[in-house]
Design a protein around this nucleic acid. Structure first.
Length: 499
RNA sequence: GCCAAGGUGGCAGAGUCCGGCCGAACGCAGCGGCCUGCAGAGCCGCCCAUCGCCGGUUCAAAUCCGGCCCUUGGCUCCA
């Protein structure tokens, strides 16, 4: 089965065929760096990352670009707040850095380029000039607008009729624009205090002063700033060319942002801008979405600290990228159980491989077959529009097979079967960005030695029949997050997972 | 109002494109049992679903068609 993806443009699930059979051009519509990255962003990043990994797994070279929108009124509104920075550029850069740090903590593959708007203004101006020359855009009072009536297919992504969109326009904006749905490509002048008013936070600099720090550029239409949508067209064309294979972004960006990207890009080049439009669904918190604007978010940094990378990635891939997902303590806790089950099976298998019992000639056909079946099921799931939930099921079935084997053959393991299980767990886990082989740090070694010491003492208490003392020691360890398990060969333990 | 997505067991969440293997996956929670000094982990088994409602097509529908109800997202900054 080949990869199929659901394309917002057609509303259908289609076979994926890149323009070049060996390379995939992937653009992810990144963040406006005006707020701390939250779990909702992480959900999209992780799904894009999984797409990237699966495409590579399938043998493609992936050229992956993710932009940062670092020119925006909301960024200006933050000037002077905390120690974010003294001007728009500094505030943006501090959020970019924070975002990259958070991305690293989620074990994301690096994109090839992380372009910023502020570095692409010449390309943006060129693109706008082309649109003006071709008659798709017009200047009005120092700004340049895209004339939506000139682009016949306007509305094709969000499936809306122009008349309907037109009727939504803000009446007071119609003065400069020919049509209410026209959107700004270039905004003349700087940022006014009124524009940032509603985004102000405590501790920010005086609004007038903040606006003076906003970036502006010279252009054929005078000094000004790029409009919101044009940057993605300019950056993706600069780095990936006129037509890209996959464009991914949040569902909330379909209209107007992605619709406008299509209009600008295709009007300028006459070529299809992106062949496949994929949209990531949003988190639901109770009855509303998680978002920066609602302020109901959990930051990535805090979530990683609390749950760790593997648990978080298990959670974030617990539903399909294009299905809404419920965020709650329960749904995260469930993901943690799921990851723990995987990790325990992995550890049990590795331990078995290292034990003398692994030297036996036992062959467990059930185990080997289960691993083989799981690999196939995993591939089928991923090829079916990146069905990560099904993919997790396949991984879990390996865990069950390993546990079942160890239960059924306590003294003689199927070395090759277990080896294959461990390999499959690592290979497939890697596609989801899950890592079973956490790095062992010096302090973890020391902690392990200390735990062993405590367990030795506990063993002496047990031999003396002092069950209460033994249980107290176990409880104390568990209070520290250290799981203790008594087995025939003595107690084993697991340190709290920390990545 | 218009556009889009969705409504599946106690929870969560696949399956719906390509009707039958779905008497509905995987997992969590719950209940038995094995193991164990106890607990946990693991294993075996079980419980919980007339798949939003009503009609239609079909030998056969969670899956196709029509109508209705409800939820969410977009139409303003948003992954």
């Amino acid at each position: 089965m080949t990869l199929h993806v659901t394309n917002t443009l057609t509303g259908e699930t289609e076979p994926f065929e890149p323009r070049d059979p060996e390379n995939v051009l992937l653009y992810y519509c990144g963040l406006t760096v005006s707020d701390p990255p939250h779990l909702g962003h992480a959900r999209s990043w992780v799904h894009v990352d999984v797409m990237h990994r699966w495409l590579e797994h399938a043998g493609y070279d992936v050229r992956h670009v993710e932009n940062f929108t670092d020119v925006n009124e909301k960024i200006v509104a933050r000037v002077g707040e905390d120690d974010l920075g003294e001007d728009e550029a500094e505030v943006a850069e501090s959020y970019v850095e924070r975002t990259l740090t958070d991305m690293r903590s989620l074990n994301l593959l690096r994109a090839e380029v992380y372009p910023r708007v502020s570095e692409h203004v010449p390309e943006i101006i060129d693109l706008i000039e082309t649109l003006v020359e071709k008659g798709y855009a017009y200047e009005s009072a120092g700004s340049v607008y895209f004339d939506v009536t000139r682009f016949e297919e306007y509305g094709k992504l969000s499936n809306q009729e122009l008349e309907e969109i037109e009727s939504q326009g803000e009446p007071d904006e119609r003065t400069e624009k020919r049509n209410p749905a026209d959107f700004a490509l270039w905004k003349g002048g700087g940022v006014d205090a009124d524009a940032i008013d509603e985004h102000r936070h405590e501790g920010a600099a005086d609004a007038e002063h903040a606006c003076e720090t906003a970036m502006t550029w010279d252009s054929p239409w005078g000094e000004g700033r790029p409009g919101w949508h044009i940057e993605c067209s300019a950056m993706s064309m600069t780095h990936l060319g006129e037509t890209l294979d996959i464009h991914v972004g949040g569902r909330d960006l379909v209209f107007p942002h992605h619709e406008n990207e299509i209009a600008q890009s295709e009007a300028a080049t006459g070529e299809q801008f992106a062949n496949y439009w994929l949209h990531c669904e949003l988190f639901q918190m109770d009855d509303e979405k998680m978002s920066s604007s609602l302020g109901n978010f959990v930051t990535v940094g805090r979530a990683v600290e609390q749950w760790g990378t593997n648990v978080l990635r298990t959670f974030l891939t617990a539903g399909s990228y294009n299905s809404k997902q419920l965020y709650s303590d329960e749904t995260i806790a469930e993901a943690e159980e799921r990851w723990d089950r995987l990790e325990r099976a992995y550890e049990a298998a590795v331990e078995a491989l290292d034990s003398p019992a692994a030297g036996s000639k036992v062959e467990d056909a059930d185990l080997r077959e289960a691993v083989e079946t799981a690999r196939e099921a995993f591939a089928t799931a991923m090829n079916d529009d990146f069905n990560t939930r099904e993919a997790q099921s396949a991984l879990l079935s390996i865990a069950s097979a390993v546990n079942g084997h160890l239960e059924a053959h306590p003294d003689a393991y199927d070395y090759r079967g277990l080896r294959e299980a461990v390999d499959a767990l690592c290979d497939l886990g890697d596609v989801l960005g899950l890592s079973f082989t956490g790095e062992t740090t010096g302090t973890a070694d020391l902690a392990g030695d200390v735990v062993e010491l405590v367990l030795d003492i506990r063993e002496q208490e047990r031999e003396a029949g002092n069950w209460d003392r033994a249980d107290d020691l176990r409880d104390e360890l568990e209070a520290l997050g250290i799981e203790v398990q008594d087995t025939d060969e003595g107690a084993t333990y697991r340190l709290p997972s920390s990545e």
